[in-house]
């Protein structure tokens, strides 16, 4: 079977079940955008370099341009459209952590996974996580402030 032959791909995205007819060679990013209309994940480089297409697969951030849709079968995919009032979204708004907004969905998904999985993240860990995404408008300082504010809230609610 060639990579261009189409098949039925069952996907779970944002808690909803979908069945998509797509090529086996189609990336998850392409299927999310072109089949499901979920255009929050952005095609910034299609090479895994910029992070604008970041989504969560079973709570782990992945670059959806670097993975095939068929690899997401049986996993739970969360895109920016699936976040509902996540603290990181408000923090990005309040800290002016974006301008043009194009890298924002990827940054937010990555940062969301960080604060959820590692609420006590140290500075080097924050850096390690977020260096995978590129932003050209902000100075990154605003994004750092947004992420740290959510971590601080998490800390405070724990204490």
């Amino acid at each position: 079977m060639s990579s261009s032959s189409k098949c039925e791909i069952p996907l779970t995205v944002n808690g909803e079940k979908y069945s998509v007819i797509a090529r086996q060679a189609d990336t998850l990013l392409f299927v999310l955008r072109n089949h499901l209309g979920l255009t929050g994940a952005k095609p910034g480089c299609l090479n895994g370099d910029c992070g604008a297409c970041t989504v969560l697969m079973d709570k782990t951030p992945i670059k959806s341009c670097m993975i095939l849709a068929i690899e997401a079968i049986g996993k739970s995919v969360t895109t920016i459209e699936g976040l509902r009032d996540a603290p990181i979204q408000r923090a990005f708004v309040e800290h002016f952590a974006f301008q043009c907004g194009y890298c924002t969905p990827g940054f937010i998904m990555n940062a969301h996974a960080l604060v959820e999985s590692t609420p006590n993240a140290s500075e080097p860990i924050i850096e390690k996580w977020l260096e995978s995404n590129v932003c050209r408008c902000t100075s990154y300082f605003e994004i750092e402030q947004a992420v740290k504010s959510v971590l601080a809230e998490k800390q405070a609610s724990k204490d």
């Binding site: 260096e131 590129v134 100075s139 990154y140 300082f141 750092e144």
Partner: peptide, 17 residues
């Protein structure tokens, strides 16, 4: 002509502003 070889500043490389 690629971000991985052109290499803009990334998160964590930013100074105090």
């Amino acid at each position: 002509p690629q971000i991985r070889t052109y290499q803009p500043i990334r998160f964590g490389e930013h100074p105090e502003y």
